[in-house]
Design a protein around this nucleic acid. Structure first.
Lengths: 231, 231
DNA sequence: CGCTAGCCAGTTGTTGAACGACCTGGCAAC
DNA sequence: GTTGCCAGGTCGTTCAACAACTGGCTAGCG
């Protein structure tokens, strides 16, 4: 099932020390957390990977204490799993987790669509659509995934609630975990490029009914697709 | 406006070292966080109070590193404010923060009422009503506040979503901050004891329309009351 | 042969001290 | 009155060390 600990450490040495070089001397707990977040999003850290404090801290070029602070942050976000006296490992999402994330997404996104719309957020919705199209044209499916993430983030931002934005950020971070586990990002994002575009148009036109139906259909399909990959 | 730093430290010495004695030797970052959470909820730590790492760690009887881990957790929860190179202080909620908390509460609680109901959560709704009445009968208004908090926590739990529960926990923690700033908890919780009871009845009877209207009225009034205390 | 108890290596949790970086307030010079 | 500088205090990070805990291995027992 999972590789032996030693193998984990060996396999990690590469991406981690590469990220460590990017951190360039001065540590910074938040920057360490950011680096780990990116590694998870890029799929360099597969769910289930254990991250021994000693090996990880030296690879990243920061002190163990600083790394621990970063671990706490990421554990709070749900990206890492922290077991007492057993260390941290990259979280593995269960099917129930995926379902819960989508349940919450529905609540947040529908609420954002129903309420008054923040114009600035509407602009970012449009921008995300364009970025997604550009990334797709360049064959950058990882970029498409990022644009899709920003798209739905912007949809929630329509509500103008910093706290809802923060929750959505967490949900999307967990989803990146699920996508990383599922492998190739293309089938999970390409089909929805034009759906996003139409959804943006409906939002701009103020046609909330159409927007809602389109969003519901998207969420249902995406969830089913992800759940299938987790079975 | 705020007292001079030295005064803060002196005033803190009491509650903090008392809490430190309760921590009893073995530190534990999570337990430290829990202790600080309680101090904030009890109003022992007024919003705006600064918490110097050195003085606080010695008062609590834990190392500075351990305290810093606890600080990170609480800052994430919004209870403490962390400014770079300026240390942490107990967060002060602005009127906009209070409004945002209630905006999010509406989203979560209405969503929980509308969806399918988890029977176990319904039971906890009932329990919270009883606990609130018992606390009121005993004149324990702080206890009433806690019961009210558990009541609305249970309402959200109807949705059966761990992530929504977690978000609600954060919102309620922030609200405790606002209540602590407002002073006497009685006028903020007593009027709603019977409202909660009726809301519970409506939920049990499956009368979602009535439950929704009652909840909306409650949230509007409570928010206005809290905003008035913050002006 | 199977099983339990206990030991052992490895890892985490916590501590304490140390040093550089940074903010703040006050003083002096212009 | 403003600007610039300086010193005191606090934070951010690192390092080394030890206690506490975990999981697996071994030896002894039935």
């Amino acid at each position: 099932m999972t590789a032996r600990p030693r193998d984990d450490v060996d396999r990690l040495q590469g991406p981690l020390s590469r990220a460590g070089r990017a951190l360039a001397g001065g540590g910074g707990a938040d920057r360490v957390a950011e680096a780990l977040r990116d590694l998870v999003a890029d799929g360099a850290l597969v769910p289930g990977t254990r991250l021994p404090e000693d090996a990880t801290s030296t690879s990243l070029g920061v002190s163990r204490n600083t790394l621990r602070e970063a671990f706490r942050l990421l554990a709070r976000e749900g990206l890492l799993q922290h077991e007492l006296h057993r260390g941290v490992s990259v979280r593995t999402l269960s099917a129930a987790d995926v379902a819960d994330v989508y349940r919450f997404r529905r609540v947040l996104e529908f609420a954002a669509i129903d309420g008054p719309h923040d114009p600035a957020a509407l602009q970012r919705v449009r921008t995300a659509v364009e970025e997604g199209r550009a990334a797709a044209a360049a064959g950058d499916w990882h970029g498409v995934a990022g644009a899709n993430s920003r798209f739905h983030s912007a949809v929630v931002a329509l509500a103008g609630s910093p706290r809802m934005d923060e929750s959505m950020r967490h949900l999307l971070a967990e989803l990146r975990l699920a996508f990383a586990a599922a492998g190739d990002p293309r089938p999970f994002h390409e089909p929805y490029l034009e759906d996003n575009a139409r959804l943006a148009e409906h939002l701009e036109a103020g046609e909330r009914g159409r927007a809602g139906r389109l969003l519901a259909a998207y969420l249902d399909r995406a969830e089913a697709q992800l759940l299938a990959a987790h079975g």
